[in-house]
Simulated assay, not measured.
Amino acid sequence: MASTSRGRVQICCPEHPDAPLVEDYHAGDMICPECGLVVGDRVVDVGTEWRTFSNEKNTKDPSRVGAAENPLLEGGDLSTMIAIDPKDSQVDEFGKPMYRNRRTMNSADRALTNAFREISQMADRLNLPKMVSDRANTLFKQVNDTKSLKGRSNDAVCSACMYIACRQEFVPRTFKEICAVSKVSKKETGRVFKLILKTLETNVELITTGDFMSRFCSNLSLSPRIQKAATYIARKAVDLYLVPGRSPVSVAAAAIYMASQASEDKKTQKDIGDIAGVAEVTIRQAYKLMYPKAHDLFPEDFKFATPIDQLPTQ
């Protein structure tokens, strides 16, 4: 039913004239929400056109008009390049053709794009989720805008941003793991990491042994029972101040070694060191500090396959 109001035709339901009609964009119908009556049909869809012409014989796809917009780039990926007539060619003094610059983005955007690509590749090698690479991209953009790290290589800044992003997104990785997928040394990454924290006036949460325990135990194919015991041992060792000055990674590796030696699934210091990225001597030194208090470190419900008195002393 249609009613006329001031020269305009207004469609309404004959049974419920005051009810606001619901438009079904897929079918092109105007439906009354009270009784479900289709009042008007074949309504013109004023939404965005999403048709694709990729199946036609023409090789070009008109539905693809450019890359997705990236808010981190200066131009927002909306820059335009005017084509040059190929017949309008110039030659230099030696008669060779001169090619005009056809770059589609400025140097600043190109540097950002290369850095984002490097960060994405590092995230892929480390099997990290996209939110970590997005956080690293944002950190790199903030550092780049401050222009406080001029002279530092972009690879070092990318590695440091990835390390910070991992810790801020609660999926921490060690410096060795970051350096293994980048082109920068551990020393340079650590130096740039401190400069970024100072420049951006931000901080990161302290790393604990629990941040690495599940990943290390999973890579070692250890059971959840051993993982739970290793987590308890590492936390207890830190609480009792048995391993002062030791990094959380080395404490976690020593705790895994102690828990595995007391169980039926024993792992060597070399196996654990290869997964954790810690030298055998480092694991041995932390284990020697924890061994005298081994009776106080294991949880009460732990089932020993090897008694504490028969555990290796180092």
Rank of each mutant, 00 (worst) to 15 (best):
residue 35 C to P: 07
residue 55 N to M: 08
residue 214 S to Y: 01
residue 141 K to W: 03
residue 163 Y to I: 11
residue 194 K to V: 11
residue 191 R to M: 10
residue 25 Y to G: 13
residue 19 A to C: 07
residue 75 G to K: 04
residue 188 E to S: 06
residue 157 V to P: 00
residue 203 N to T: 10
residue 15 E to R: 02
residue 235 R to V: 02
residue 311 L to M: 10
residue 200 L to F: 12
residue 224 P to T: 10
residue 122 M to H: 02
residue 105 M to N: 03
residue 231 T to D: 15
residue 168 Q to Y: 02
residue 210 G to A: 13
residue 70 N to Y: 02
residue 173 R to G: 05
residue 129 P to I: 03
residue 303 K to E: 03
residue 313 T to C: 03
residue 86 P to C: 08
residue 213 M to G: 06
residue 28 G to F: 14
residue 261 Q to L: 06
residue 11 I to L: 06
residue 25 Y to F: 08
residue 32 C to A: 13
residue 229 A to C: 11
residue 257 Y to M: 00
residue 232 Y to M: 04
residue 193 F to W: 09
residue 303 K to M: 05
residue 310 Q to E: 11
residue 198 K to R: 04
residue 47 G to K: 11
residue 164 I to M: 01
residue 101 N to A: 13
residue 27 A to D: 09
residue 30 M to N: 05
residue 274 D to Q: 08
residue 101 N to M: 10
residue 148 S to W: 04
residue 158 C to T: 06
residue 258 M to N: 06
residue 252 A to G: 11
residue 110 R to D: 09
residue 218 S to I: 05
residue 160 A to K: 03
residue 75 G to S: 14
residue 313 T to S: 09
residue 64 R to N: 13
residue 260 S to Y: 05
residue 304 F to Y: 12
residue 60 K to M: 07
residue 244 P to T: 11
residue 271 D to H: 15
residue 29 D to S: 06
residue 304 F to L: 12
residue 131 M to D: 05
residue 247 S to G: 08
residue 147 K to L: 09
residue 289 L to M: 14
residue 294 A to W: 00
residue 214 S to N: 13
residue 186 K to N: 05
residue 84 I to N: 12
residue 110 R to K: 04
residue 93 E to I: 14
residue 196 I to D: 00
residue 281 V to W: 00
residue 154 N to W: 00
residue 231 T to G: 14
residue 66 G to T: 12
residue 246 R to E: 11
residue 306 T to E: 02
residue 54 S to E: 06
residue 272 I to L: 04
residue 242 L to I: 03
residue 114 N to R: 15
